[in-house]
Simulated assay, not measured.
Amino acid sequence: MNAEEKELIIFFDCGDTIIDEGTEVRDEHGTVIDGKVIPGADVMVRTLAEHGYRLAIVADGLAQSFKNLLTINGLYDYFEVLIYSEQMKVDKPNPRMFKAAMAAMELDEQDRNRIIMVGNNLSRDVRGANQVGITSVHLNWTTRYPKTSLDALEQPDYSISEPLALVELADRLNAELVSNVKEC
C-alpha cells in the first residue's frame, strides 16, 4: 500500500530519535552491531512511509552502524536517502550534511520550506536545520541530551515527546503545505 506522495519531506537523526542509544551493542572497532528502536519509532517510520512521505536519514556516525541498526529493526528500506557524517567528513550541525540529503533527493533551495528535520539533539539536529532554513522538530524523548535551548538557533520550531506524535504533526504540516500550494 503506497499512498500518494506528500509535499512534506522528513529528515531523521537516528540515535535516540529512531534507535535507543542505550541499547546499542558495539564491536571491537566501535561499529554498532545491535540496538533496539525507541518505543513507537518503528511504527512511526512505517506509518509515515505508508502515508507517502519521503524519508531520509541525516546522522552522525559510521555508515555500517546505521545499516546494521536499521536493517536489524526492519527499517532500512523505508529511507530514500541515508547521509552519514562518516561519508561527509563533517558532523551536524554542519550545513553540508543537510545540503547533501537535499541534493541526493533532488531538492533545491525552493524546497527547504517542505523539509522537516527530526532529531533529539538541540545543538546538532535543531541548530543544523535552523541554520539552513529547514523546519526543526525536537524529539524530546531522551535524558541523555539537554532539553533547553542555549541560543536562538537551538530553539526548535516544534517539539514532540514521543515518536508517534510525529505522524499527526507531519500530516498537519503537509496539509498546510498543500493548502499554501493551492492558494498560489
Rank of each mutant, 00 (worst) to 15 (best):
G133M: 02
M44A: 03
A165F: 00
H51I: 01
G35T: 10
Y145R: 05
G119E: 03
L173T: 02
G119K: 02
G22L: 02
K36S: 15
M117C: 05
F79V: 06
N68L: 11
L139K: 02
G35E: 09
S85T: 06
H29M: 13
L169F: 00
R54E: 12
M105N: 12
L177V: 08
N94W: 01
N68Y: 11
A175K: 13
S85Y: 01
N73P: 12
W141L: 03
S179K: 13
E109K: 05
F66E: 05
V81H: 07
L62A: 10
R26E: 14
L153N: 09
V167H: 03
T31N: 12
D34C: 08
D27Y: 11
V81C: 09
E28D: 15
A63S: 14
K6R: 15
E5F: 02
V178S: 09
D27E: 13
K99L: 13
K67D: 14
V25H: 13
E183F: 01
Q131G: 00
M88T: 07
E24S: 07
D27T: 12
A100I: 02
I18G: 02
G61T: 07
R112I: 06
A175W: 00
V32R: 10
K92R: 10
L82D: 06
E183P: 00
R96D: 15
G22S: 13
R96V: 11
E5K: 12
S149W: 01
T143W: 04
G128H: 03
Q87T: 09
T47V: 02
T17R: 07
N73G: 06
M97A: 01
T71M: 04
M102C: 08
S123G: 01
V126W: 00
S136H: 07
I10R: 07
S179L: 07
P95F: 00
N180L: 10
A100Q: 15
V81Y: 05
L166G: 05
G40W: 04
T17F: 01
M117P: 08
D171V: 03
A103G: 14
T31Q: 14
M44Y: 04
N180F: 02
L48P: 10
A103E: 15
V25A: 14
V118H: 03
T135E: 09
Q110H: 14
Q64P: 09
D16C: 01
P156N: 00
E162A: 03
S136M: 06
